[in-house]
Design a protein around this nucleic acid. Structure first.
Lengths: 204, 204, 204, 204
DNA sequence: AATGAATGAGTATTCATTCAT
DNA sequence: GATGAATGAATACTCATTCAT
């Protein structure tokens, strides 16, 4: 019974935390980190300013936790989906699709990742050393497996290639965000992978 | 005579402006835009706070002008160098080398481009619509020419490919900046181009 | 029976109130009034923040009541002890000893009296008009009695002298608190009274 | 010439600093340290909030500097006056008069010393270790000299006596501040010194 | 042109207090 | 009685920008 009560309490607490995070994502995406006041976020979340500090240590921590939790979720979800795919080349394809589809589906979140995350070199480093490392690891494993199966050239350096793939996808997202967004981001997956897989040079 | 005086004056003016910009690049690279005060820049440049406003409209304008002028210079220099190269494939190669070499040679400037530029969505848009457009245009022309010469596949979309190439190079620079920087950035050019040119798939 | 229950209830209530006060004395002595939060006191007392307000009107009232009750107790105790002493000069001596001994025995409480009490001119006035008045009255009576017995000079103004004695003792306590506290406060009683009784001038 | 300019500048700077300090003394005496906002002080001084921070590190530093400078001045002035007095007993008398007269002449400053200074244990310690030490030293020297001349009893411990004298004077000031102030503080000097010199016991 | 003292708008954060449970 | 989550008023301090000299 007490566990039930506590679980209800936890749900309520989590619920409010999520409400604040979602409000924050929305406001931060529009105004940027330094253009957003804590009061704005609190108002958007429908709580008092002080309430924010019951769930987050400070404004910085709020942004940090948003990025940390959302990317963590993304990586978990992605891992689960990818595991069910046999061929490493198909996995690579799915990987790119997931990246583009998920950021293309939530412009606010995309804005936070592409613009706000880069604000702060400390935050970038933290992100780079935790999430990006995991992200690269997944890619590396796929690439290595594909090499073992003879699908990818042996001379290719997996970690270097992981960076390239991330760089390409990252640029596509940023470009889309700065554009009129009159095309579906995920549609860029196929032509992009064509180049990565086959190169741009003609073989005649 | 008066023109001579004015030119001297201009030189003096330009000289001080450059001194301020160089001081700013150094300080901004270390502390970030929001971590740097106008006073700090002024002190580093050896001028009074108010003097800064004789050369730049405001703090934002200072960063904007630094990025604008340095990238303008880079593009002009690059264009000149590339014009002397016959083969479009060699030009492409040189292009990537120039990108990596110039940013790898000036860590402070690289920091400004990779981190500070992204602070501000307005600044990003401005950059994207002016400098990045020119940058992409150069790439597009090279790619188109290579296609005409049958060196690059006809199905390849030049603008899309330009984005990809920029994305890849951009990611390499950012990664290098966040790393220990114990390798030469320009050395990444060859393996990167190998992938872009030939793709990652094996052909057996 | 109901009176029994109520008395038990009162005891319980009193007990918790005292627990809060003791926790408060400890925390306030270390951190000072403005350096102490209500939460800290509540935590130290092992109760919820809100509980504090069932026993005290507000944070100010808590400090006020501590000082009021402790000094009230001290004065009652002192009065009882002094009554049993015949000679007014011995009473005066005992008085000084009590002052120094009781504050020297509880550094936390001493800290509250010497430092925290002075926070607030309103609190000071209140203290001065209630407790200090009583304190001075006791001294005055002793002095007057000693004058009647010819032990103290007739020209001496009792109230003025009461202030002097308090001032001297008060300074001794403050000095001790700010010192390394490597001596017993009560040991200052004798040399101090020697001066007050006999003056500093030599009579040869 | 440049020295003249600089001296004018210094005067101007000093002048504004003093203006701020005087405004602060006035406001702090009425509202107490924690009851006074920086804005209130700035407005009372006729400057902008930020200007205050050109002259003082922070609110704390402002109070600290007021106390430090005023007591420093008081001690210097006092020393000069006392030096011109031959007899150590007369010096002692003058000393007490100076203490009471100077604080009795500036109620605001007195309030700061008697109430605000005690707020903060850190400030008290600082004051005790710098100003109070000097103050005690002056007293000690006078007392020792008087002992050598056979005017004060040999058994008297000079430092202990210095504390007593300070304690007595301090209490007189505080009492006066908390009273209706319908008497001249300096008039307390004579009866007080009578007791300190001759003691309270009758000699018949 | 150059200065740098002065400005004052702008904001993250704290914490005493309340009140629904 | 007891709780502690929620509140939101209150404030020291910063710093881009100005302008009299």
């Amino acid at each position: 019974m007490s566990s039930h009560v506590s679980s209800v309490r936890n749900n309520k607490k989590t619920e409010k935390k999520i409400r604040i995070q979602e409000a924050a994502i929305h406001v931060l995406a529009r105004n940027g980190y330094h253009g957003t006041t804590v009061s704005q976020i609190a108002k958007a979340a429908g709580v008092a300013d002080g309430t924010l500090y019951l769930y987050f240590e400070n404004k910085d921590d709020l942004l940090l936790k948003i990025i940390h939790e959302r990317t963590g979720q993304f990586i978990e979800d992605g891992r689960a989906i990818l595991e069910s795919i046999e061929s490493p080349m198909d996995r690579l394809h799915k990987f790119a699709e997931l990246h583009l589809a998920s950021l293309g589906a939530d412009e606010d979140l995309a804005c936070i990742f592409q613009i706000e995350l880069r604000h702060n070199i400390r935050m970038m480093k933290n992100f780079s050393e935790t999430r990006l490392r995991k992200y690269f690891n997944i890619l590396e494993i796929i690439i290595t497996e594909a090499q073992e199966q003879g699908r990818i050239r042996k001379e290719i350096e997996p970690r270097h290639t992981a960076k390239l793939i991330f760089g390409v996808l990252d640029e596509l997202v940023t470009n889309w965000l700065l554009s009129e967004r009159d095309y579906a981001l995920v549609d860029m997956a196929d032509p992009t992978l064509d180049i990565l897989f086959n190169g741009i040079t003609s073989r005649t």
